[in-house]
Protein backbone atom coordinates (compact mmCIF):
# COMPACT_ATOMS: atom_id res chain seq x y z
CA UNK A 1 0.00 0.00 0.00
CA UNK A 2 1.16 3.55 -0.68
CA UNK A 3 -0.28 7.01 -0.79
CA UNK A 4 -0.45 9.85 1.69
CA UNK A 5 -3.34 10.53 4.05
CA UNK A 6 -3.57 14.10 5.32
CA UNK A 7 -5.58 15.76 8.07
CA UNK A 8 -5.81 19.51 8.60
CA UNK A 9 -7.48 21.14 11.58
CA UNK A 10 -7.46 24.43 13.52
CA UNK A 11 -4.55 24.64 15.98
CA UNK A 12 -6.60 24.04 19.12
CA UNK A 13 -5.97 21.44 21.81
CA UNK A 14 -9.50 20.05 21.43
CA UNK A 15 -8.48 18.77 17.98
CA UNK A 16 -5.45 16.74 19.06
CA UNK A 17 -7.64 13.66 19.47
CA UNK A 18 -8.33 13.70 15.71
CA UNK A 19 -4.63 13.36 14.99
CA UNK A 20 -4.26 10.61 17.62
CA UNK A 21 -7.10 8.61 16.09
CA UNK A 22 -5.65 8.87 12.60
CA UNK A 23 -2.18 7.98 13.92
CA UNK A 24 -3.56 4.76 15.40
CA UNK A 25 -5.45 3.87 12.22
CA UNK A 26 -2.42 4.48 10.00
CA UNK A 27 -0.17 2.52 12.36
CA UNK A 28 -2.59 -0.38 12.06
CA UNK A 29 -2.29 -0.18 8.28
CA UNK A 30 1.49 -0.27 8.63
CA UNK A 31 0.95 -3.47 10.63
CA UNK A 32 2.78 -2.08 13.64
CA UNK A 33 2.60 -4.19 16.82
CA UNK A 34 0.28 -2.72 19.44
CA UNK A 35 3.02 -1.25 21.62
CA UNK A 36 4.53 0.55 18.62
CA UNK A 37 1.08 1.69 17.53
CA UNK A 38 0.54 3.25 20.95
CA UNK A 39 3.99 4.84 20.75
CA UNK A 40 3.12 6.45 17.42
CA UNK A 41 -0.12 7.70 18.89
CA UNK A 42 1.81 9.29 21.77
CA UNK A 43 4.47 10.74 19.45
CA UNK A 44 1.86 12.39 17.20
CA UNK A 45 0.05 13.65 20.30
CA UNK A 46 3.31 15.21 21.51
CA UNK A 47 4.26 16.70 18.11
CA UNK A 48 0.82 18.22 17.52
CA UNK A 49 0.59 19.52 21.09
CA UNK A 50 3.99 21.21 20.81
CA UNK A 51 3.07 22.89 17.52
CA UNK A 52 -0.24 24.08 18.98
CA UNK A 53 1.56 25.70 21.93
CA UNK A 54 3.58 27.83 19.50
CA UNK A 55 0.91 28.16 16.78
CA UNK A 56 0.10 31.51 15.23
CA UNK A 57 -3.45 32.63 16.10
CA UNK A 58 -6.04 31.28 13.69
CA UNK A 59 -3.56 28.92 12.01
CA UNK A 60 -3.99 25.26 11.13
CA UNK A 61 -2.05 22.11 11.91
CA UNK A 62 -1.52 19.60 9.10
CA UNK A 63 -0.68 15.93 9.59
CA UNK A 64 0.48 13.85 6.64
CA UNK A 65 0.84 10.08 6.99
CA UNK A 66 2.62 8.13 4.28
CA UNK A 67 2.83 4.33 4.31
CA UNK A 68 6.10 2.98 3.01
CA UNK A 69 6.07 -0.78 3.25
CA UNK A 70 6.69 -1.60 6.89
CA UNK A 71 7.43 2.04 7.69
CA UNK A 72 5.31 5.07 8.43
CA UNK A 73 6.43 8.58 7.57
CA UNK A 74 4.58 11.30 9.47
CA UNK A 75 4.94 15.04 8.94
CA UNK A 76 3.19 17.38 11.36
CA UNK A 77 3.37 21.05 10.42
CA UNK A 78 1.96 24.40 11.42
CA UNK A 79 2.61 28.12 11.28
CA UNK A 80 4.47 29.09 14.42
CA UNK A 81 4.65 32.37 16.28
CA UNK A 82 8.34 32.06 17.09
CA UNK A 83 9.39 30.64 13.72
CA UNK A 84 11.75 28.34 15.59
CA UNK A 85 11.99 24.58 15.62
CA UNK A 86 11.71 22.86 19.02
CA UNK A 87 15.06 22.46 20.74
CA UNK A 88 16.56 19.00 20.84
CA UNK A 89 17.36 19.28 24.56
CA UNK A 90 13.72 19.54 25.65
CA UNK A 91 11.78 16.78 27.37
CA UNK A 92 9.32 16.89 24.48
CA UNK A 93 12.09 16.05 22.02
CA UNK A 94 13.38 13.29 24.28
CA UNK A 95 9.88 11.82 24.38
CA UNK A 96 9.36 11.92 20.62
CA UNK A 97 12.83 10.50 19.94
CA UNK A 98 12.15 7.58 22.25
CA UNK A 99 8.78 6.84 20.67
CA UNK A 100 9.76 6.73 17.00
CA UNK A 101 12.94 5.87 15.10
CA UNK A 102 13.89 9.36 14.02
CA UNK A 103 12.62 12.87 14.59
CA UNK A 104 13.70 15.78 12.46
CA UNK A 105 12.55 19.38 12.46
CA UNK A 106 12.72 22.14 9.90
CA UNK A 107 11.28 25.59 9.47
CA UNK A 108 10.35 27.12 6.17
CA UNK A 109 8.79 30.59 5.90
CA UNK A 110 7.38 30.42 9.44
CA UNK A 111 6.00 26.92 8.98
CA UNK A 112 7.53 24.46 11.43
CA UNK A 113 7.51 20.79 10.40
CA UNK A 114 8.24 17.83 12.63
CA UNK A 115 8.96 14.62 10.79
CA UNK A 116 8.48 11.36 12.64
CA UNK A 117 9.69 8.20 10.99
CA UNK A 118 8.92 4.77 12.34
CA UNK A 119 9.64 1.26 11.06
CA UNK A 120 8.15 -1.97 12.29
CA UNK A 121 10.60 -3.45 14.75
CA UNK A 122 9.68 -7.11 14.90
CA UNK A 123 8.93 -9.10 11.76
CA UNK A 124 5.24 -9.83 11.23
CA UNK A 125 3.99 -12.73 9.14
CA UNK A 126 2.01 -11.44 6.19
Amino acid sequence: MSGTVTLTFPAQTGNVALARTLAAAMSARADLPLDQLEDVRLAVDEAVSQLIIDAAPGSDIACAFTLMGDALDIVVSGTSTSGRTPDADTFSWTVMSALVDTVTARVDAGVVSLRLFVTRHAPVDA
Binding site: A28, D31, P33, L34, D35, L37, A122
Partner: peptide, 20 residues
Amino acid sequence: RAPTVRELAESLGVGEEDVL
Protein backbone atom coordinates in the same frame (compact mmCIF):
# COMPACT_ATOMS: atom_id res chain seq x y z
CA ARG B 1 6.13 -9.48 20.74
CA ALA B 2 2.99 -7.38 20.87
CA PRO B 3 0.35 -8.40 18.28
CA THR B 4 -0.75 -6.12 15.47
CA VAL B 5 -4.31 -4.83 15.10
CA ARG B 6 -4.76 -7.24 12.20
CA GLU B 7 -3.62 -10.21 14.27
CA LEU B 8 -5.93 -9.21 17.14
CA ALA B 9 -8.88 -8.79 14.76
CA GLU B 10 -8.28 -12.20 13.16
CA SER B 11 -7.82 -13.89 16.50
CA LEU B 12 -10.99 -12.36 17.97
CA GLY B 13 -13.03 -12.78 14.79
CA VAL B 14 -13.87 -9.08 14.57
CA GLY B 15 -12.97 -6.30 12.14
CA GLU B 16 -9.79 -4.25 12.44
CA GLU B 17 -12.00 -1.17 12.84
CA ASP B 18 -13.60 -2.81 15.88
CA VAL B 19 -10.21 -3.35 17.50
CA LEU B 20 -9.26 0.28 16.78
